[in-house]
Design a protein around this nucleic acid. Structure first.
Lengths: 100, 100
DNA sequence: TTTATTAACTTTGTAATTCAAAGTACTTTT
DNA sequence: AAAAGTACTTTGAATTACAAAGTTAATAAA
């Protein structure tokens, strides 16, 4: 029995950020409105979780206009994908420890 | 793309409680000292996480004496195991969504 | 041309969570 | 009698999360 909770990434402890990264891992660009709808949170709350992940360099922001409407979309960076993969790895090890 | 962060159990969002349940899921009785050592936290902190899980009916407490020393050990209840399994299920779905 | 609307925030304030440190009760060892 | 061990409880501070309201800048409607 050896436990590694220290290998879990604090950034992904929150269900919202966990959900965001899951989405961004498999979808190249996802916009604000889509994230908000998928995660079912207020826009202010979403904005702050986005800011947290961006500050860590885990996601990037791309602003553009679609037709005449502003549209902001997000993508996971290489570092973000790596960090998330490592987190999932740690999670798996944690859960599977001493099962065999 | 359909996301289910609502199916994640808030009780298991904390790395400490996640670690505790992982341990208790595969070890029938684990005592205070062992948990403390595995999780690397202070005893006060551990005690409060234990209290949180007990309040939810996810773990049970068994007090005994080993020789002359008091020994408290913990075990996951049936409800606790079920809740944890559901949480892991939700986690898996969340992570694997739209991968295929 | 004023007014309303939309998108994506920022700010504010509150509530909840987490944690370490210190204190406590009871017992045992020295 | 003093020190140490076990399993806490209490306290207080720091961090985090969140909703609600306010903001900015652009477009669309009246």
């Amino acid at each position: 029995m050896k436990i590694f909770i220290g290998d879990l990434n604090k950034a992904f402890e929150s269900r919202v950020r966990l959900g965001m990264m899951s989405i961004l891992l498999v979808n190249d660009f996802v916009d604000f409105a889509t994230l908000k709808e998928q995660l079912q949170i207020t826009d202010g709350n979403l904005a702050s979780h986005i800011a947290a992940l961006e500050k860590l360099g885990y996601i990037e922001i791309k602003k553009q206009f679609i037709g005449k409407k502003p549209n902001t979309s997000y993508l996971a960076t290489k570092a973000g994908k790596k960090a998330f993969a490592e987190h999932l790895d740690a999670l798996e090890k944690l859960i599977k420890q001493s099962v065999e």
